[in-house]
Computed example of a mutant assay.
Amino acid sequence: MDVPTPPWRTPRKIARQQLSQDLIVRTGLRILDEEGLEALSMRRVAQELGTGPASLYAHVANKEELLELIFDEVVGEIEVPIADPARWRDQLKELCWHMYRVLGSHADVGRLALASIPVGPNAARVSEAFLSIMLAGGLPPQVATWGLDRLYLYVTADAYESSLFLAKQRASGLELDSWADQFFGQVRTYLSQLPADRFPSLTGNVDAMMRGDGDKRFEFGLEMLLRGLDSFRD
């Protein structure tokens, strides 16, 4: 039976969680998801954990390393297949889509891979899968390694752009569909009002330019890249 603590006893302090690199990374990822990259700092993570920033440095060297660890934590959610030469294009497409979905589910995470080379164990596992699939499909090593670089950049950049659109939508206070109708409606109006004598290709193809959502465009770009890679096969 619960009874109150006698007033002459010192109340027990709630035990803090034992600091670890894993706890710091998971806390940083939660801040990133909820508040965005601009809100993430070593001080902010320390505040969330009820400690001082100095105590974090025994586990994480600096913010740059924290961002690398957060990215690798997210990439750990990506499932990778065993390379099948007969399905190499389908496997690449499935892997790219899975990576795109995972990165898109975490705000700003795609941005962490830009202008850097992800080298964590999970990133290496995904890179190994990409490369193994392309080599099994008959792509020369140089083409496969450059293909890995281009596919990685395509997926991460597209995921990051999607997160920017979502940030704009949230800041507007509108529901996603309402914001999209308003934003892209303004783009359509602007393109339609360009002088047709100076911009005949743009004004004559507004419907085609505005057709298709982000997923359809991602699929198109992916197919374009895969067809290009296919042309290099031995």
Score class of each variant (00 low, 15 high):
residue 1 M to T: 13
residue 2 D to K: 09
residue 2 D to A: 11
residue 5 T to I: 15
residue 6 P to V: 15
residue 6 P to T: 07
residue 12 R to Q: 08
residue 13 K to P: 00
residue 21 Q to E: 07
residue 21 Q to V: 07
residue 21 Q to H: 04
residue 24 I to F: 01
residue 25 V to R: 02
residue 25 V to S: 08
residue 27 T to K: 15
residue 28 G to I: 02
residue 30 R to I: 05
residue 34 E to M: 15
residue 36 G to D: 14
residue 36 G to E: 15
residue 38 E to V: 10
residue 39 A to E: 11
residue 42 M to G: 03
residue 43 R to H: 10
residue 43 R to N: 10
residue 44 R to A: 15
residue 44 R to T: 13
residue 44 R to K: 15
residue 44 R to C: 12
residue 45 V to L: 06
residue 46 A to P: 05
residue 49 L to S: 01
residue 50 G to V: 08
residue 55 S to Y: 15
residue 56 L to T: 11
residue 56 L to K: 06
residue 59 H to D: 04
residue 59 H to S: 02
residue 59 H to L: 01
residue 61 A to L: 05
residue 61 A to Q: 06
residue 66 L to T: 04
residue 71 F to I: 00
residue 77 E to D: 15
residue 77 E to C: 13
residue 78 I to E: 11
residue 80 V to I: 02
residue 80 V to N: 00
residue 80 V to P: 00
residue 81 P to S: 14
residue 82 I to A: 14
residue 86 A to D: 14
residue 89 R to Y: 00
residue 90 D to I: 12
residue 91 Q to G: 04
residue 93 K to F: 00
residue 96 C to N: 14
residue 98 H to T: 00
residue 101 R to T: 08
residue 107 A to W: 10
residue 109 V to M: 10
residue 110 G to S: 02
residue 112 L to E: 06
residue 112 L to S: 05
residue 116 S to M: 15
residue 118 P to G: 07
residue 121 P to C: 06
residue 123 A to Q: 03
residue 126 V to F: 09
residue 129 A to C: 03
residue 131 L to K: 11
residue 132 S to A: 13
residue 134 M to Q: 13
residue 137 G to D: 10
residue 137 G to S: 07
residue 139 L to E: 01
residue 140 P to W: 01
residue 140 P to T: 01
residue 141 P to Y: 06
residue 142 Q to N: 13
residue 145 T to K: 07
residue 146 W to Y: 10
residue 149 D to N: 04
residue 149 D to G: 00
residue 150 R to E: 12
residue 152 Y to L: 08
residue 154 Y to C: 11
residue 159 A to P: 07
residue 161 E to I: 14
residue 161 E to A: 14
residue 161 E to G: 10
residue 163 S to Q: 05
residue 166 L to V: 12
residue 167 A to F: 02
residue 169 Q to E: 10
residue 169 Q to A: 12
residue 169 Q to N: 01
residue 171 A to F: 01
residue 173 G to R: 04
residue 176 L to P: 07
residue 180 A to E: 09
residue 182 Q to F: 13
residue 183 F to L: 13
residue 185 G to T: 14
residue 186 Q to H: 00
residue 190 Y to L: 14
residue 191 L to N: 03
residue 192 S to H: 13
residue 195 P to D: 13
residue 196 A to D: 07
residue 197 D to G: 01
residue 197 D to C: 09
residue 198 R to F: 05
residue 198 R to P: 01
residue 203 T to N: 06
residue 203 T to G: 01
residue 205 N to W: 09
residue 207 D to Q: 04
residue 211 R to M: 05
residue 215 D to M: 03
residue 222 L to R: 11
residue 223 E to R: 08
residue 226 L to N: 06
residue 228 G to L: 09
residue 229 L to T: 04
residue 229 L to F: 13
residue 230 D to N: 11
residue 231 S to P: 07
residue 233 R to H: 09
residue 234 D to M: 07
